[in-house]
Computed example of a mutant assay.
Amino acid sequence: MTNKIDLPTDGACPCGCKDLMLARDQTEYTPVSKDGEWELGASNVEQMDRDDLVGNVRLFCTACGQYFNVPKELE
């Protein structure tokens, strides 16, 4: 795993890439029933709250994969 670093103030990765990805873990719940054919109900999405090494919200470079500490404005 890549260690997280602070995002430079210009928003670019040290590799020069400015294309970053914000990832949020979530679980989608969809009620289903079968009356001949499967019927799907309205989905509900719940944000995950996990305590792992990278957290449930991650910011990373799409070119090199460097992880950054997520700025408060993006949490």
Results as ranks from 00 to 15, higher is better:
6 D>W: 02
10 D>Q: 04
45 V>L: 08
70 V>G: 07
66 Q>A: 09
69 N>E: 15
15 C>Y: 03
65 G>T: 02
17 C>V: 03
12 A>Q: 11
5 I>G: 03
57 V>F: 04
71 P>N: 10
47 Q>A: 15
30 T>G: 05
15 C>G: 00
43 S>K: 08
49 D>Q: 11
44 N>G: 01
57 V>K: 13
53 L>E: 15
7 L>R: 03
51 D>I: 09
20 L>E: 10
16 G>C: 01
67 Y>A: 09
34 K>D: 08
41 G>I: 07
2 T>H: 15
44 N>W: 10
65 G>F: 02
43 S>E: 11
25 D>T: 08
52 D>V: 07
6 D>I: 07
73 E>I: 12
74 L>D: 09
21 M>W: 11
9 T>M: 10
35 D>S: 11
31 P>M: 05
5 I>A: 06
59 L>E: 10
43 S>P: 03
6 D>K: 09
18 K>Q: 14
38 W>G: 07
73 E>V: 08
38 W>V: 14
39 E>I: 04
60 F>N: 02
40 L>C: 13
30 T>R: 11
11 G>M: 01
3 N>L: 06
58 R>P: 06
16 G>S: 00
1 M>I: 04
18 K>Y: 04
37 E>S: 11
54 V>A: 13
66 Q>D: 12
23 A>Y: 08
73 E>K: 08
71 P>I: 04
69 N>Y: 13
27 T>Q: 14
15 C>F: 03
5 I>K: 03
12 A>C: 10
57 V>L: 15
50 R>Q: 13
6 D>S: 11
75 E>D: 15
55 G>C: 01
26 Q>Y: 14
24 R>Q: 13
68 F>V: 08
21 M>I: 15
17 C>Q: 00
60 F>H: 14
14 P>Q: 03
12 A>R: 07
27 T>N: 14
42 A>L: 03
48 M>L: 13
28 E>L: 05
66 Q>T: 14
71 P>E: 08
47 Q>H: 13
24 R>C: 06
58 R>F: 06
55 G>M: 04
54 V>S: 11
75 E>G: 05
3 N>P: 01
59 L>V: 06
70 V>T: 09
31 P>K: 01
72 K>D: 15
69 N>M: 06
25 D>P: 02
72 K>V: 10
38 W>I: 10
75 E>T: 04
2 T>Q: 15
60 F>L: 11
13 C>V: 00
44 N>Y: 09
34 K>C: 04
29 Y>T: 06
34 K>R: 07
19 D>P: 00
50 R>A: 10
37 E>I: 01
33 S>H: 06
24 R>V: 10
54 V>F: 13
63 A>W: 01
69 N>T: 12
41 G>A: 02
64 C>G: 05
61 C>R: 02
45 V>P: 01
67 Y>C: 05
40 L>W: 15
43 S>M: 04
45 V>D: 11
40 L>R: 09
47 Q>C: 11
28 E>Q: 08
64 C>E: 05
46 E>D: 10
45 V>C: 07
55 G>V: 02
11 G>N: 01
62 T>D: 09
37 E>L: 04
5 I>Y: 05
45 V>Y: 09
42 A>C: 02
44 N>T: 11
54 V>M: 13
36 G>Y: 06
40 L>M: 12
35 D>P: 00
4 K>N: 04
20 L>R: 04
56 N>D: 15
65 G>K: 06
72 K>A: 15
41 G>N: 02
